[in-house]
Every structure is written in C-alpha cells, then in structure tokens.
Nucleic acid binder design. Structure first.
Length: 361
DNA sequence: AAAGAGCGCAACCGCAGGAGC
DNA sequence: CGCTCCTGCGGTTGCGCTCTT
C-alpha cells in the first residue's frame, strides 16, 4: 500500500516546540479545529509537518490532559491493564482519563517496568521469577488461559473504547447523554459460575466473556484494609456466568469477526454475557442504588466505561460463585482462579510494600 | 566546580489500516 | 479493485536536566 511521506522534510522544523509555535497551533485549533492535519501547518503558519502538529496537540497541548505525577491508583491501573493488554498503550490510556498513551508508555518504561523488575516480576509476563520457573504442565495451561483471557479482554476493551468515543462524538452533536447498555450479572440473576472455571474447563458454551477492573477512584488506595493484622489488599476474581445450557453460546475462540461485529454493536448486551470482575476489597463499596436494578448499567456521557472501571461496584460477590453449581467447571478452574487471585495480590502487595511509591532506584 | 553517567520525557519514525476516490 | 490520503499506534531516539564522583 503506497504510503506518502508525512511531509517533504524540506524546510520543515523538527525538534522541540517553542512557545510561539504552541501558541500558533493552539490558536488555530481553537478557532478552526484541526481539520486535516496535513493542511494545518500551512494554514496555521507553522513550519512543521502535520504529523508533528498532531503529536504536539494530542500529547501536550490538548486541554483535557492531566500532567504531573501518576497517582498510586493510576499506577495500579496501568500495571493491571498492562498484564491484560500488553504494550497496547492506547487501550490502556482509554481507562486513564486525561493521560495520553505516550505518557503512559513513558511512565511504564521509566518507572513501572523497572519497579516490577526489581520486585522480581517479569514486566512482560507479569509473572514472578519463581512462577516462571514453575510454569510447566498445568501451570502452562493456566498461562494459556490467561493469555486467552487477555485476548478476550483486549478485544472487549477496544470495543468499549470505541463506544466511549462514539458517545463523545454523538454528544458533540446532541447534548443529551448517550446511554449504552452493558450486560450485567443480574440480567440472569442466578448466574454464579466463575467464568474462569469455564475457560479452564474448555467445555462450556461461552460467548464473549468480559471483565471489569474495579476501583474506587475516591476510595483510599487499596492498602486501606481494616481487617486484622493482615493488611494485604486483595483482588477478587469474581466470575459470573449464565446458565450455560440455556444460552445459544458458541465458543468463539479467535473470533475476530465476532468481535468486529460486536464492536459495531451499540449494546453490549447482545454480545457480552459474562462478567468477570477484578475487584479490590477495599473499594468494595457498592452503591445500593445499583444493586436492585442492574439489568442495564447505563454509562453516561463523559463517564463512560472508565466510571465502571474506577467507580462502579455493582455488587457481585463471590458468595454464590463459590458454590460451583455449574456442570462445566472443575478443579482446574478453581486452581486457576486461585493462581490469578494470588498473582494480583502479590503484585499489589509488592507495590504497597515498596518503601514509597516513587520509582525504585 | 567540572565532567561523566544516568534518567525522564518530548518528539520522531515507520508501519498498519480505514476511508475515500 | 487498487491507489492515495490520513490517522493512530508502538517503538525508538535524542536532548536536557539531575545526580554522582
């Protein structure tokens, strides 16, 4: 596919932007919008290529960018999303309001990666070195499941990001908030199957599982456990699933096409029937208002999925999930559940046990 | 105080893929 | 259907600042 150079590179300035250039770019975009980036520099009187202007705007000048030190919450979100998504910074940035993918990428490379390494955690696999050594046999199966889970999660996050973008786009034309529907556990109240078990078993009829990383942005950081001496925060993997036998579920592994169609769907309800929730106990404060009627969880404009990610806590406890009433789970699933639970707990434990939350040097 | 090393971050590079013609 | 334009993304680079010796 022919790709033209972004600029002819003759007479165009490169390198750091000057305040004057920033001012020109800002003034132009405020008045006209960016329109075509390629045409922008000439119109704005800048000796830059369009690509450079776009980067400057998206990574620095945009008014909705939050700069400065990353909070502990943000760090944890990055680490956990990275474990699921890998180096997909734009997807991760979707869940960190006001942070750019570039900033997150830089922060990961300069701070978090080193910190995890120092903790003995492989920043690529998010496994401890011991885990890596033991990762044979059944362990590798779990690793494969985690990888599979990550694929689902990755696709789902992309879909959600798209919906948020579409929501914002629509709202620019229509001031009324846009509402999307997400499936929820209570859509089928008796769903109590741990989705992880289902994945591990490989024999369940599953559609696209989904997961929610839950935090409370306003809650104290996760180390605020008040239970006993053991103040180690925990993350729970809460899986819910429907009556697998009653659903039309078809295992759609590697179902790229299915995901594409799902991404184009306005409602998640049609495509996502399972929730797997990572929750932090310390943030386990469920608004009662959300409990009674969660058939459709409305995501309002500007809050988007991030609200769910960070604030929502539709209560889906493990209490009934532990009954293992399904007929397609099994012991392996339980082990998997425990392994991943332990994994997240270990990361957070290590994070929180750091002398401070500044990079370890 | 000076020089070198290390670090952090803004910016660049090149590829991928969607949209339009 | 193929080409070009345009944008988004992830990896990498290089400069300036800070720290160490």
């Amino acid at each position: 596919m022919g790709r033209s150079p972004c600029c002819d590179k003759v007479g165009l300035k490169k390198g750091p932007w000057t305040p004057e250039e920033d001012q020109k770019l800002l003034a132009y975009i405020e008045e006209h919008g960016h329109g075509s980036w390629r045409a922008l520099p000439a119109k704005a009187g800048l000796q830059r290529c369009g690509k450079s202007c776009r980067l400057r705007w998206t990574n620095y000048l945009r008014p909705d960018i939050k700069r400065g030190k990353f909070s502990l919450q943000e760090e944890q979100t990055i680490i956990q999303l990275h474990a699921l998504l890998g180096n997909r910074w734009s997807a991760i940035a979707t869940h960190l309001p006001k942070r750019t993918d570039n900033e997150i990428k830089n922060y990961w490379n300069t701070h978090l990666k080193k910190r995890l390494t120092k903790m003995g955690i492989d920043p690529v696999t998010h496994k401890t070195k011991n885990d890596a050594l033991l990762s044979t046999g059944g362990q590798s199966k779990n690793a494969a499941n985690l990888s599979h889970m990550a694929q689902w999660e990755s696709a789902r996050l992309e879909a959600e990001a798209r919906l948020v973008r579409e929501s914002k786009l629509r709202s620019s034309f229509n001031n009324t908030p846009t509402t999307y529907n997400l499936s929820s556990a209570s859509a089928q109240p008796n769903r109590s199957l741990d989705i992880l078990k289902a994945w591990s078993s490989g024999g369940c009829d599953l559609e696209s599982p989904t997961s929610i990383l839950r935090f409370s942005e306003n809650a104290p950081p996760i180390m605020t456990s008040s239970v006993g001496d053991n103040s180690v925060p925990t993350i729970e993997f809460v899986g819910t699933s429907g009556n697998s036998s009653s659903e039309t579920g078809i295992i759609k592994e590697e179902g790229e096409e299915d995901w594409k169609s799902m991404e184009n769907s306005v409602s998640f309800t049609s495509g996502l029937h399972h929730d797997m929730t990572l929750s932090i106990e310390a943030a386990w404060t469920s608004p009662e208002s959300l409990r009674g009627n969660s058939e459709h969880v409305s995501i309002m404009e500007e809050e988007g999925f991030t609200s769910l990610l960070l604030n929502d806590s539709v209560d889906r406890s493990l209490s009934d999930g532990g009954k293992d009433s399904d007929n397609c789970g099994g012991g392996e699933g339980s082990e998997y559940y425990e392994d991943n639970k332990n994994y997240w707990n270990s990361i957070l434990n290590l994070m929180n046990s750091s002398p401070d939350h500044s990079p370890m040097l």
